[in-house]
Simulated assay, not measured.
Amino acid sequence: MSKLLDALLIDLRSQRFTFRLMGLELKPSKPGERRQVLRSPLTFAIMVIATSFEFCTVCAFIVQHSSEIVLCSEALMHGVQMISSLLKMWIFLWKCEELVALIAAIQQPFEQTNIDPAELLIFQQQSRIGQSLSSIYTLMCTGTSISFLLMPLALTLLRFNSTGLFAPVSSFRVVLPYDVTQPEIYFLDCCLMVFVLTFFCCSTSGVDTLYGWFVFGLTAHYRCLVLRLQRISCNKGLSEWQLEQQLDQLFGEHAKLLRLVDRFELAFREIACVEVLLICVLYCSVICQYIMPHTNQNFAFLGFFSMVVSTQLCIYAVGAERVRHEGQEFAQQLYMQLPWHQLSARLRRLLLLPLQRATKETHLGAYFFVLGHPLLVWTFRTAGSFTTLLNALRAKYEH
Protein backbone atom coordinates (compact mmCIF):
# COMPACT_ATOMS: atom_id res chain seq x y z
CA MET A 1 0.00 0.00 0.00
CA SER A 2 2.86 2.35 0.84
CA LYS A 3 4.49 1.76 -2.56
CA LEU A 4 1.17 2.46 -4.27
CA LEU A 5 0.83 5.76 -2.40
CA ASP A 6 4.41 6.70 -3.29
CA ALA A 7 3.64 6.04 -6.96
CA LEU A 8 0.43 8.11 -6.83
CA LEU A 9 2.02 10.99 -4.91
CA ILE A 10 5.07 11.28 -7.11
CA ASP A 11 6.30 14.77 -7.94
CA LEU A 12 3.80 16.73 -10.15
CA ARG A 13 1.75 13.63 -11.05
CA SER A 14 -1.71 15.16 -10.43
CA GLN A 15 -0.81 18.42 -12.23
CA ARG A 16 0.56 16.61 -15.29
CA PHE A 17 -2.52 14.41 -15.43
CA THR A 18 -4.98 17.32 -15.35
CA PHE A 19 -3.03 19.36 -17.90
CA ARG A 20 -2.71 16.31 -20.17
CA LEU A 21 -6.50 16.02 -20.26
CA MET A 22 -6.57 19.52 -21.78
CA GLY A 23 -3.87 18.67 -24.32
CA LEU A 24 -0.98 20.30 -22.43
CA GLU A 25 2.34 18.86 -21.32
CA LEU A 26 4.25 20.10 -18.27
CA LYS A 27 7.52 18.18 -18.71
CA PRO A 28 10.53 20.53 -18.91
CA SER A 29 12.62 20.11 -22.05
CA LYS A 30 16.08 18.58 -21.86
CA PRO A 31 19.17 20.57 -22.91
CA GLY A 32 19.10 21.05 -26.67
CA GLU A 33 15.51 19.80 -26.93
CA ARG A 34 12.50 21.88 -27.98
CA ARG A 35 9.41 20.63 -26.17
CA GLN A 36 6.02 22.18 -26.94
CA VAL A 37 3.65 22.71 -23.99
CA LEU A 38 0.48 22.68 -26.13
CA ARG A 39 0.65 19.09 -27.40
CA SER A 40 -2.96 18.75 -28.60
CA PRO A 41 -4.34 22.10 -29.85
CA LEU A 42 -7.55 20.43 -31.05
CA THR A 43 -8.48 19.11 -27.59
CA PHE A 44 -7.76 22.47 -25.99
CA ALA A 45 -9.67 24.35 -28.69
CA ILE A 46 -12.77 22.15 -28.33
CA MET A 47 -12.88 22.76 -24.56
CA VAL A 48 -12.36 26.51 -24.93
CA ILE A 49 -15.01 26.84 -27.66
CA ALA A 50 -17.54 24.78 -25.67
CA THR A 51 -16.91 26.85 -22.54
CA SER A 52 -17.11 30.11 -24.50
CA PHE A 53 -20.42 29.02 -26.03
CA GLU A 54 -21.90 28.25 -22.60
CA PHE A 55 -20.56 31.57 -21.30
CA CYS A 56 -22.44 33.38 -24.10
CA THR A 57 -25.67 31.62 -23.08
CA VAL A 58 -25.10 32.75 -19.49
CA CYS A 59 -24.63 36.36 -20.62
CA ALA A 60 -27.82 36.17 -22.69
CA PHE A 61 -29.72 34.75 -19.72
CA ILE A 62 -28.48 37.55 -17.41
CA VAL A 63 -29.54 40.21 -19.93
CA GLN A 64 -32.96 38.61 -20.38
CA HIS A 65 -33.57 38.31 -16.62
CA SER A 66 -31.71 41.42 -15.47
CA SER A 67 -34.59 42.43 -13.18
CA GLU A 68 -34.66 39.11 -11.32
CA ILE A 69 -31.91 39.12 -8.69
CA VAL A 70 -32.27 35.44 -7.75
CA LEU A 71 -31.88 34.14 -11.30
CA CYS A 72 -29.08 36.59 -12.08
CA SER A 73 -27.08 35.59 -9.00
CA GLU A 74 -27.34 31.93 -10.00
CA ALA A 75 -26.23 32.60 -13.58
CA LEU A 76 -23.50 34.92 -12.29
CA MET A 77 -21.97 32.03 -10.33
CA HIS A 78 -21.51 29.97 -13.50
CA GLY A 79 -20.44 32.94 -15.62
CA VAL A 80 -17.73 34.15 -13.23
CA GLN A 81 -16.28 30.65 -12.91
CA MET A 82 -16.14 30.32 -16.70
CA ILE A 83 -14.37 33.69 -16.97
CA SER A 84 -11.91 32.57 -14.30
CA SER A 85 -11.15 29.27 -16.07
CA LEU A 86 -10.76 30.87 -19.50
CA LEU A 87 -8.55 33.71 -18.26
CA LYS A 88 -6.34 31.43 -16.17
CA MET A 89 -5.71 29.08 -19.08
CA TRP A 90 -4.97 31.89 -21.55
CA ILE A 91 -2.54 33.43 -19.05
CA PHE A 92 -1.00 29.99 -18.51
CA LEU A 93 -0.46 29.57 -22.26
CA TRP A 94 1.05 33.07 -22.42
CA LYS A 95 3.51 32.24 -19.65
CA CYS A 96 3.87 28.49 -20.17
CA GLU A 97 7.53 28.60 -21.21
CA GLU A 98 8.52 30.55 -18.09
CA LEU A 99 6.42 28.30 -15.85
CA VAL A 100 7.95 25.12 -17.28
CA ALA A 101 11.43 26.63 -16.95
CA LEU A 102 10.62 27.52 -13.34
CA ILE A 103 9.58 23.92 -12.69
CA ALA A 104 12.96 22.78 -13.99
CA ALA A 105 14.75 25.36 -11.81
CA ILE A 106 12.94 24.10 -8.69
CA GLN A 107 13.71 20.46 -9.46
CA GLN A 108 17.26 20.88 -10.76
CA PRO A 109 19.19 20.91 -7.42
CA PHE A 110 17.41 17.71 -6.30
CA GLU A 111 18.09 15.78 -9.52
CA GLN A 112 21.86 15.97 -9.28
CA THR A 113 23.76 12.75 -8.62
CA ASN A 114 25.74 14.25 -5.72
CA ILE A 115 22.69 15.55 -3.87
CA ASP A 116 22.74 15.21 -0.09
CA PRO A 117 20.27 12.43 0.94
CA ALA A 118 18.93 14.60 3.78
CA GLU A 119 18.13 17.45 1.38
CA LEU A 120 16.56 15.04 -1.09
CA LEU A 121 14.40 13.66 1.73
CA ILE A 122 13.20 17.19 2.59
CA PHE A 123 12.16 17.78 -1.02
CA GLN A 124 10.40 14.40 -1.23
CA GLN A 125 8.51 15.05 2.01
CA GLN A 126 7.34 18.47 0.86
CA SER A 127 6.40 17.07 -2.53
CA ARG A 128 4.41 14.27 -0.91
CA ILE A 129 2.48 16.74 1.28
CA GLY A 130 1.82 18.97 -1.72
CA GLN A 131 0.60 16.09 -3.87
CA SER A 132 -1.68 14.85 -1.08
CA LEU A 133 -3.34 18.27 -0.81
CA SER A 134 -3.45 18.56 -4.62
CA SER A 135 -5.24 15.22 -4.87
CA ILE A 136 -7.84 16.31 -2.32
CA TYR A 137 -8.46 19.58 -4.15
CA THR A 138 -8.68 17.77 -7.50
CA LEU A 139 -11.26 15.41 -6.00
CA MET A 140 -13.28 18.45 -4.86
CA CYS A 141 -13.26 19.85 -8.40
CA THR A 142 -14.15 16.43 -9.80
CA GLY A 143 -17.02 16.08 -7.33
CA THR A 144 -18.27 19.53 -8.38
CA SER A 145 -18.28 18.59 -12.07
CA ILE A 146 -19.79 15.14 -11.55
CA SER A 147 -22.57 16.36 -9.25
CA PHE A 148 -23.39 19.23 -11.63
CA LEU A 149 -24.00 16.80 -14.50
CA LEU A 150 -25.10 13.53 -12.91
CA MET A 151 -27.58 14.78 -10.31
CA PRO A 152 -29.92 16.46 -12.87
CA LEU A 153 -29.40 13.53 -15.27
CA ALA A 154 -30.41 11.05 -12.56
CA LEU A 155 -33.49 13.13 -11.66
CA THR A 156 -34.49 13.33 -15.33
CA LEU A 157 -34.21 9.55 -15.75
CA LEU A 158 -36.12 8.87 -12.50
CA ARG A 159 -38.92 11.21 -13.56
CA PHE A 160 -39.09 9.57 -17.00
CA ASN A 161 -39.15 6.12 -15.43
CA SER A 162 -41.96 7.00 -13.01
CA THR A 163 -44.17 9.21 -15.23
CA GLY A 164 -43.13 8.32 -18.78
CA LEU A 165 -42.69 12.02 -19.55
CA PHE A 166 -39.35 13.43 -20.67
CA ALA A 167 -38.91 16.67 -18.68
CA PRO A 168 -35.18 17.50 -18.40
CA VAL A 169 -33.85 18.76 -15.07
CA SER A 170 -30.80 21.01 -15.22
CA SER A 171 -28.43 22.69 -12.77
CA PHE A 172 -27.68 25.19 -15.51
CA ARG A 173 -30.83 27.29 -15.96
CA VAL A 174 -29.95 29.41 -18.99
CA VAL A 175 -31.45 30.25 -22.37
CA LEU A 176 -30.17 27.79 -24.97
CA PRO A 177 -30.52 28.24 -28.75
CA TYR A 178 -31.86 24.69 -29.09
CA ASP A 179 -34.69 22.66 -27.58
CA VAL A 180 -33.37 20.34 -24.85
CA THR A 181 -36.80 18.82 -24.30
CA GLN A 182 -35.99 16.53 -27.23
CA PRO A 183 -34.09 13.43 -25.95
CA GLU A 184 -31.49 13.54 -28.75
CA ILE A 185 -30.80 17.25 -28.22
CA TYR A 186 -30.64 16.73 -24.46
CA PHE A 187 -28.05 13.95 -24.94
CA LEU A 188 -25.93 16.19 -27.19
CA ASP A 189 -26.18 19.00 -24.63
CA CYS A 190 -24.92 16.62 -21.93
CA CYS A 191 -21.98 15.69 -24.18
CA LEU A 192 -21.21 19.39 -24.63
CA MET A 193 -21.31 19.91 -20.86
CA VAL A 194 -18.79 17.09 -20.43
CA PHE A 195 -16.20 19.22 -22.27
CA VAL A 196 -17.16 22.34 -20.29
CA LEU A 197 -17.00 20.59 -16.93
CA THR A 198 -13.73 18.83 -17.80
CA PHE A 199 -12.25 22.20 -18.71
CA PHE A 200 -13.47 23.70 -15.42
CA CYS A 201 -12.14 20.79 -13.37
CA CYS A 202 -8.74 20.56 -15.08
CA SER A 203 -8.07 24.29 -15.40
CA THR A 204 -9.06 25.04 -11.82
CA SER A 205 -7.29 22.12 -10.16
CA GLY A 206 -4.30 22.18 -12.54
CA VAL A 207 -3.35 25.86 -12.26
CA ASP A 208 -4.17 26.22 -8.55
CA THR A 209 -2.32 23.06 -7.48
CA LEU A 210 0.64 24.06 -9.64
CA TYR A 211 0.83 27.25 -7.56
CA GLY A 212 0.78 25.06 -4.45
CA TRP A 213 3.52 22.85 -5.88
CA PHE A 214 5.78 25.88 -6.30
CA VAL A 215 5.07 26.91 -2.70
CA PHE A 216 6.11 23.50 -1.35
CA GLY A 217 9.13 23.44 -3.68
CA LEU A 218 10.33 26.82 -2.39
CA THR A 219 9.69 25.60 1.16
CA ALA A 220 12.00 22.64 0.52
CA HIS A 221 14.71 24.99 -0.79
CA TYR A 222 14.49 27.20 2.30
CA ARG A 223 14.65 24.21 4.65
CA CYS A 224 17.68 22.82 2.84
CA LEU A 225 19.40 26.16 3.42
CA VAL A 226 18.57 25.93 7.14
CA LEU A 227 20.00 22.39 7.19
CA ARG A 228 23.26 23.58 5.59
CA LEU A 229 23.46 26.45 8.06
CA GLN A 230 23.06 24.05 11.00
CA ARG A 231 25.88 21.89 9.66
CA ILE A 232 28.17 24.90 9.31
CA SER A 233 27.43 26.08 12.85
CA CYS A 234 27.97 22.59 14.30
CA ASN A 235 31.37 22.18 12.64
CA LYS A 236 33.65 23.73 15.26
CA GLY A 237 36.91 22.76 13.53
CA LEU A 238 36.59 25.18 10.62
CA SER A 239 39.19 27.86 10.14
CA GLU A 240 38.07 31.39 9.40
CA TRP A 241 38.89 30.95 5.71
CA GLN A 242 36.92 27.70 5.47
CA LEU A 243 33.99 29.25 7.31
CA GLU A 244 34.04 32.21 4.94
CA GLN A 245 34.04 29.88 1.92
CA GLN A 246 31.11 27.82 3.18
CA LEU A 247 29.11 30.90 4.13
CA ASP A 248 29.86 32.43 0.75
CA GLN A 249 28.39 29.32 -0.91
CA LEU A 250 25.38 29.38 1.42
CA PHE A 251 24.62 33.03 0.68
CA GLY A 252 25.05 32.37 -3.04
CA GLU A 253 22.38 29.68 -2.83
CA HIS A 254 20.17 32.05 -0.85
CA ALA A 255 20.52 34.72 -3.54
CA LYS A 256 19.51 32.15 -6.19
CA LEU A 257 16.49 31.21 -4.09
CA LEU A 258 15.40 34.84 -3.80
CA ARG A 259 15.59 35.13 -7.58
CA LEU A 260 13.43 32.00 -7.84
CA VAL A 261 10.86 33.62 -5.54
CA ASP A 262 10.85 36.75 -7.71
CA ARG A 263 10.35 34.62 -10.84
CA PHE A 264 7.54 32.75 -9.11
CA GLU A 265 5.79 36.01 -8.22
CA LEU A 266 6.10 37.38 -11.76
CA ALA A 267 4.90 34.12 -13.31
CA PHE A 268 1.71 33.94 -11.22
CA ARG A 269 1.00 37.66 -10.76
CA GLU A 270 -1.71 37.86 -13.44
CA ILE A 271 -3.36 34.58 -12.41
CA ALA A 272 -3.43 35.62 -8.75
CA CYS A 273 -4.88 39.01 -9.73
CA VAL A 274 -7.68 37.30 -11.69
CA GLU A 275 -8.41 35.09 -8.68
CA VAL A 276 -8.65 37.99 -6.24
CA LEU A 277 -10.74 40.21 -8.53
CA LEU A 278 -13.27 37.50 -9.37
CA ILE A 279 -13.39 35.51 -6.14
CA CYS A 280 -15.40 38.17 -4.25
CA VAL A 281 -18.22 38.09 -6.81
CA LEU A 282 -17.95 34.32 -7.15
CA TYR A 283 -18.13 33.70 -3.41
CA CYS A 284 -20.99 36.20 -3.10
CA SER A 285 -23.01 34.38 -5.78
CA VAL A 286 -22.36 31.04 -4.04
CA ILE A 287 -23.64 32.39 -0.71
CA CYS A 288 -26.72 33.75 -2.47
CA GLN A 289 -27.66 30.23 -3.57
CA TYR A 290 -28.07 29.27 0.10
CA ILE A 291 -29.91 32.32 1.44
CA MET A 292 -32.20 33.24 -1.49
CA PRO A 293 -35.39 31.34 -2.36
CA HIS A 294 -34.90 28.63 -4.98
CA THR A 295 -36.60 25.60 -6.40
CA ASN A 296 -34.97 22.31 -7.35
CA GLN A 297 -31.54 23.47 -6.14
CA ASN A 298 -28.63 21.05 -6.67
CA PHE A 299 -27.19 21.12 -3.15
CA ALA A 300 -24.64 18.39 -3.89
CA PHE A 301 -23.12 20.67 -6.54
CA LEU A 302 -23.33 23.72 -4.26
CA GLY A 303 -21.61 21.88 -1.43
CA PHE A 304 -18.65 20.82 -3.58
CA PHE A 305 -18.48 24.20 -5.32
CA SER A 306 -18.43 26.06 -2.00
CA MET A 307 -15.46 23.96 -0.86
CA VAL A 308 -13.65 24.58 -4.16
CA VAL A 309 -14.15 28.36 -4.01
CA SER A 310 -13.00 28.57 -0.38
CA THR A 311 -9.96 26.34 -0.98
CA GLN A 312 -9.13 28.23 -4.17
CA LEU A 313 -8.54 31.47 -2.31
CA CYS A 314 -6.76 29.76 0.60
CA ILE A 315 -4.22 28.20 -1.78
CA TYR A 316 -3.01 31.61 -2.92
CA ALA A 317 -3.25 33.47 0.38
CA VAL A 318 -1.91 30.75 2.69
CA GLY A 319 0.69 29.68 0.11
CA ALA A 320 2.11 33.21 -0.04
CA GLU A 321 2.16 33.34 3.76
CA ARG A 322 4.07 30.06 3.85
CA VAL A 323 6.81 31.36 1.55
CA ARG A 324 7.09 34.51 3.64
CA HIS A 325 7.28 32.48 6.85
CA GLU A 326 10.01 30.20 5.50
CA GLY A 327 12.08 33.24 4.52
CA GLN A 328 11.70 34.68 8.00
CA GLU A 329 12.61 31.32 9.55
CA PHE A 330 15.86 31.19 7.57
CA ALA A 331 16.74 34.75 8.65
CA GLN A 332 16.06 33.86 12.29
CA GLN A 333 18.16 30.70 12.10
CA LEU A 334 20.94 32.64 10.40
CA TYR A 335 21.11 35.03 13.33
CA MET A 336 20.76 32.35 16.01
CA GLN A 337 22.98 29.59 14.59
CA LEU A 338 26.07 31.53 13.57
CA PRO A 339 28.62 32.08 16.38
CA TRP A 340 28.84 35.83 15.85
CA HIS A 341 30.83 36.42 19.02
CA GLN A 342 33.62 34.15 17.74
CA LEU A 343 33.99 35.77 14.33
CA SER A 344 36.51 38.42 13.50
CA ALA A 345 35.40 42.01 12.93
CA ARG A 346 36.19 41.72 9.20
CA LEU A 347 34.02 38.61 8.78
CA ARG A 348 31.18 40.16 10.77
CA ARG A 349 31.21 43.17 8.46
CA LEU A 350 31.15 40.91 5.40
CA LEU A 351 28.15 39.01 6.77
CA LEU A 352 26.15 42.12 7.60
CA LEU A 353 24.80 42.67 4.07
CA PRO A 354 23.65 39.03 3.54
CA LEU A 355 21.98 39.14 6.96
CA GLN A 356 20.11 42.32 6.05
CA ARG A 357 19.02 40.74 2.76
CA ALA A 358 17.78 37.63 4.56
CA THR A 359 15.75 39.61 7.10
CA LYS A 360 13.89 41.52 4.36
CA GLU A 361 10.31 40.23 4.24
CA THR A 362 9.15 38.38 1.15
CA HIS A 363 5.83 39.65 -0.20
CA LEU A 364 4.08 37.87 -3.05
CA GLY A 365 1.86 40.36 -4.84
CA ALA A 366 -0.86 40.42 -7.49
CA TYR A 367 -0.53 43.97 -8.88
CA PHE A 368 -2.96 45.74 -6.52
CA PHE A 369 -2.90 43.15 -3.73
CA VAL A 370 -0.42 41.52 -1.39
CA LEU A 371 -1.29 37.86 -0.98
CA GLY A 372 -1.69 36.73 2.62
CA HIS A 373 -4.09 36.31 5.52
CA PRO A 374 -5.27 39.98 5.51
CA LEU A 375 -6.34 39.57 1.87
CA LEU A 376 -8.19 36.37 2.80
CA VAL A 377 -10.18 38.19 5.50
CA TRP A 378 -10.80 41.21 3.25
CA THR A 379 -12.13 38.97 0.45
CA PHE A 380 -14.62 37.17 2.69
CA ARG A 381 -15.79 40.46 4.20
CA THR A 382 -16.23 42.05 0.76
CA ALA A 383 -18.15 39.00 -0.47
CA GLY A 384 -20.41 39.31 2.58
CA SER A 385 -21.04 42.97 1.75
CA PHE A 386 -21.94 42.09 -1.85
CA THR A 387 -24.31 39.41 -0.57
CA THR A 388 -26.05 41.87 1.75
CA LEU A 389 -26.42 44.33 -1.14
CA LEU A 390 -27.96 41.72 -3.46
CA ASN A 391 -30.30 40.51 -0.74
CA ALA A 392 -31.43 44.09 -0.09
CA LEU A 393 -32.04 44.64 -3.81
CA ARG A 394 -34.08 41.44 -3.99
CA ALA A 395 -36.19 42.53 -1.01
CA LYS A 396 -36.78 45.94 -2.60
CA TYR A 397 -37.63 44.97 -6.19
CA GLU A 398 -39.13 41.49 -5.89
CA HIS A 399 -41.60 42.07 -3.02
Results as ranks from 00 to 15, higher is better:
339 P>K: 10
240 E>H: 08
179 D>T: 04
16 R>W: 03
377 V>D: 11
238 L>Y: 07
184 E>N: 03
335 Y>L: 09
41 P>Y: 09
45 A>L: 13
81 Q>W: 12
248 D>F: 07
31 P>T: 11
70 V>F: 01
158 L>F: 12
311 T>L: 06
116 D>S: 14
34 R>T: 14
131 Q>P: 04
233 S>M: 04
342 Q>K: 14
242 Q>Y: 03
221 H>R: 14
213 W>L: 07
164 G>D: 05
367 Y>P: 00
171 S>T: 12
370 V>I: 14
396 K>Q: 14
24 L>K: 06
273 C>W: 06
2 S>I: 08
229 L>S: 06
128 R>H: 09
139 L>C: 13
352 L>P: 01
232 I>S: 01
1 M>Q: 08
265 E>H: 05
87 L>Q: 06
323 V>L: 11
209 T>K: 06
102 L>H: 05
108 Q>W: 04
47 M>E: 02
49 I>N: 01
212 G>Q: 13
46 I>F: 07
166 F>T: 06
215 V>G: 05
118 A>S: 14
227 L>H: 11
22 M>E: 04
329 E>G: 00
26 L>S: 06
121 L>R: 14
226 V>T: 10
358 A>T: 03
52 S>E: 05
364 L>H: 02
174 V>E: 01
35 R>D: 04
237 G>P: 00
360 K>L: 13
38 L>F: 05
182 Q>T: 10
142 T>H: 09
378 W>P: 00
104 A>G: 09
191 C>K: 09
391 N>L: 15
279 I>G: 01
261 V>W: 02
180 V>F: 08
139 L>A: 14
184 E>Q: 11
357 R>S: 10
202 C>D: 11
68 E>H: 14
70 V>W: 00
253 E>M: 08
222 Y>H: 12
104 A>K: 14
124 Q>T: 12
279 I>E: 04
199 F>R: 03
130 G>V: 06
23 G>E: 10
118 A>P: 00
251 F>S: 07
264 F>W: 09
258 L>F: 04
370 V>F: 05
347 L>W: 04
